[in-house]
Amino acid sequence: MEMRAVYAECLAEMMEKDRHVCVLDADLSKASGTRKLYERFPEQMFDCGVAEANMASIAAGLSSYGFKPWIESFTPFATRRICDQIAISISYAKQNVKVVGTDPGISAELNGGTHMSMEDIGVLRSVPGVVIFEPVDEVQLRAAMPVLNEYYGCVYVRLFRKQLPTVFGEDYTFDLFKADTLREGKDLSIFVSGFLTKDALEVADQLAAEGISCDVINVHTIKPIDKETVLASARKTGAVLTIENHNVIGGLHSAVLEALAAEKIPACAVGVQDRFGEVAKMPYLRKVMGLTVEDMVAAAKKAVSLK
């Protein structure tokens, strides 16, 4: 199932149970997968048109009236474009608004560089009070949605729209503030977020064949980062690799290194090297951005060699 379909299904369940749950769009409900909900929940779905700033502040106003709004747009327009509205109308004012950015990083594909946000985590990570969550697959997303809805405050959800391979089993239990250890090893800690998590497992398999065993830890919540898990793993293995579909400045790599700032542990990064995106399909983009499994294996070996 596509991630957006899972997302919309979860929203529908939540709206059915609670009339205060509502969704605001900025003319991208079709892209977000929520268009069909307009008929079913006419008093809970609001299209603000192409006006993201207004959408964010309206959501804050609704929140002050006891509503639980979710706002959605493509990732760059849900973050960098409305950073001040998220900062002031929502987080500073202590309002309960969920911000959903779809098509993160290279997954914007054919929309190209203007729609390809490499900095959204960095932008919002520096705003106090904003929780940043990036789901890996539909199992995790389904488990997370009710938790996010019940969490009072601003959460940014970095949502891949299309179908993704499943990483988690049906017995998965979700803790918003706890990273998930998917694989345990002793030579290297791989911290990974979002859809690249599946690839990180493949990297671990390849390295295992060469006698390098890895912790693979999915950091689904990049802020606040689960420092305890990050520290424990890095201290155990003595080498770190971060993997993310985001600029290496400001995202997961930065968050992990901040957690490890007082440690003497070598770390390498697979991520976008401080550049804008460009138009193409994923395989090409992964190559030019250095996000292939081969890039990850090479970086992993480098991190281990630096010990």
Partner: peptide, 16 residues
């Protein structure tokens, strides 16, 4: 305090 935003918030309050 960040100009323009309060007006949108008021619209959200009125909608609420």
């Amino acid at each position: 305090g960040s100009l323009g935003q309060g007006f949108s918030c008021a619209v959200g309050v009125a909608l609420g």
